[in-house]
Each structure stands twice: as structure tokens, then as C-alpha cells.
Design a protein around this nucleic acid. Structure first.
Lengths: 158, 158
DNA sequence: GAATTACATTTGTATATACAATAGTTGTAG
DNA sequence: CTACAACTATTGTATATACAAATGTAATTC
């Protein structure tokens, strides 16, 4: 899938535009494959991410702000995401005793079991998505992407 | 921004997982910057993409399926996306005479003018997003991403 | 040429997301 | 200790998206 073919322009696109489009297309592909892989578990990608973060906490509770920091999505969303996970009994929510404004969220036993299965499927999906490039190329790619994610001049406004 | 810091796992992540997470993070960044850049024009990223595709048609009309093929989003959406652009008088819609099932969509004069301004801002944004890597690195990145977008084994199910 | 199938788009519905406003809790200044 | 500001989470609302069903048109088959 060539980017120029998609937008079908006469002039070649600036290399920056092309790069961004490529990134968006890859992302689209990732989203589709991931959603498909998680469908049997009846959780969304975001819900999977919440579970993964909670697992990463190793029994320690996470409050909403923590979850939110580590997630891409926005706060208002996180509340409702957790609501869904509670309905499925994958996580638990309690009010923090020392600061009643805070909410503590834990992954349940069922949550851990499900997450384990999901993780296996997701890893397979990731490998499939990346099957066209070698490990050393992945490292190369990672290095480049890492630099793109680094805000070395966040303040410098457009 | 290091991926391991975000998920906070003890064990290092498989390189595939890390790569996918990096891609998702970069995408998140692109979405944010792009939405921000387009805000003054009161169009969404998707609406901007539609305009860009129509412009690429060079006066020729595009029907909905064409738009849809070249866009990331799904069909049902495209109808409503175009609705919005019509409200803003950036595109026009007519029924195709030779096949009344088809809908032809054109970019208007106003649409072209606005698109020009948007494109300038977007290009600046793209350069800003990519400022941390050189042109040759962009080419390298493009080559890798292009391979990821190539379905060389679409049929091979997980 | 009537019935059936396929095509192109639209609509309905459920869910997801973004942003702003609100509620409940805690900290702090006078 | 009361008033006010700050913090944490939730809710409301508008918009976006995904998927399935429905609409209207054209092509095909009998």
C-alpha cells in the first residue's frame, strides 16, 4: 500500500507528509488487528490497556489519576472504562481511606486470568503485524519512534 | 517518554510489544497536534482528509466509495462527514446522472481556499512532529513503515 | 417484464471519545 | 471554625465511530 496511491496526487508529497501518513496507516492497521484479536474477550483495546497497567502494579492499587497518566485516553473516559470493567468483574473499585477523594482500583483474580489469555493473543497479533521486519529493524524503528515521542521542545509553539 | 516507564513492568517488554506501543504513542501525538492545528479552521482531521482527497481529484468528481477507499474511516461515516463539509460550504454533492445510485462530490472554491491554508499549517505541524529526525532517517522510517503496511500474507489467519 | 440479486449510499443504534460543568473531599488563610 | 481554593472523580453533552439494517437504483435471470 503506497501512500501516493491513496491520496493520488500528481506531485510527490513532501517527505514529512508521507511519513505522517505512513504512521497513520500503520496505526489504523494496528487498531483493526488489535480490536479483532480482543473481540472474543469482549473488551476494547483501552480496557485491555487498563488491565495491563493494573497488572503492572503488582497487587498495589492504582487510583484513577495514575491510570490516566499511563493511558492515552482522557480522564472522563477512564471513569467509564473502569465502570465497564467492573461490570465484567475484571476489576474492583474502592474509596481510598486516607484520602476519600481518591479511588483505588484493583485487578481481580478473574481479571488476571483473562488478561493472561488476552496477552498471549495480543502478542501473536503484534508478531503478525511486525512479521515483515526483522528484530534489528524493530530496534532501529524503536529508536526512531522514541525520538519522535520525545518532546525536546514542547514549549516552542508553532 | 519511555514505554517501559508508561506500563511500568518489571520484566522488559517483548520487542514487538514495545514497538507497537511506540507506534501507538507516536500516533497519539500526531492526532493531538493535528487536531490542534486544524482547530482554527473548525474541521476535523477526517474532514481535512476528505478535502485533500477531493483536491487530489483535480476537478474530477469523487463518489463516496472512492472517498471511502482512500480514507481510513468506514463508509457510514463518510456520508455524515460529507454532510458536515456541505454545511460549511467546502464541498458540493450531486447525484450522478449516468448511475443514480452514485453520488458525486466536488470540492468548492471556498473549499480549495481553506484547504490551502490548512495544508500550510498541517505541513508546519508535520515538520514539528518530525523535527527530531533527519530526512534520511525519515526515508529509512518510511521504508520500514511501508513494509508494515504491506499485507504480504493477508490470508494467513492468526 | 416481473422477480431477484447486487450495488451505492444512508440511517439507526450502540458505544466511544472530547470537553466543560459539577460534586464531593481536603487543605489553608484569616 | 468558616470561607475559599485546590484536588479527584463523575456526569452531561456534543460529536465521532463501528456495525447492521434499510433505502433506492441498476443489472440479471427466468
Amino acid at each position: 500500500m503506497n501512500v501516493e496511491k491513496i491520496i493520488k496526487v500528481k506531485k510527490p508529497l513532501p517527505v514529512e507528509t508521507k511519513t505522517i501518513l505512513h504512521l497513520l496507516l500503520v496505526n489504523q492497521r494496528i487498531s483493526e488487528f488489535t480490536a479483532e484479536a480482543l473481540k472474543p474477550f469482549d473488551v476494547s483495546t483501552q480496557q485491555f490497556n487498563v488491565l495491563r497497567i493494573l497488572k503492572g502494579q503488582n497487587e498495589k492499587a492504582a487510583n484513577l489519576s495514575t491510570l490516566n497518566e499511563r493511558m492515552v485516553s482522557k480522564m472522563s473516559n477512564t471513569t467509564r472504562l473502569v465502570d465497564k470493567l467492573i461490570l465484567k468483574k475484571l476489576v474492583k473499585r474502592t474509596v481510598c481511606e486516607s484520602n476519600r477523594r481518591k479511588i483505588e482500583i484493583f485487578i481481580t483474580k478473574k481479571g488476571k486470568e483473562e488478561l493472561k489469555k488476552m496477552s498471549e493473543v495480543i502478542l501473536k497479533t503484534e508478531k503478525k503485524l511486525l512479521q515483515n521486519i526483522s528484530t534489528s529493524e524493530m530496534n532501529e524503528l524503536n529508536e526512531l519512534l522514541n525520538r519522535l515521542n520525545t518532546n525536546n521542545s514542547e514549549e516552542q509553539k508553532l
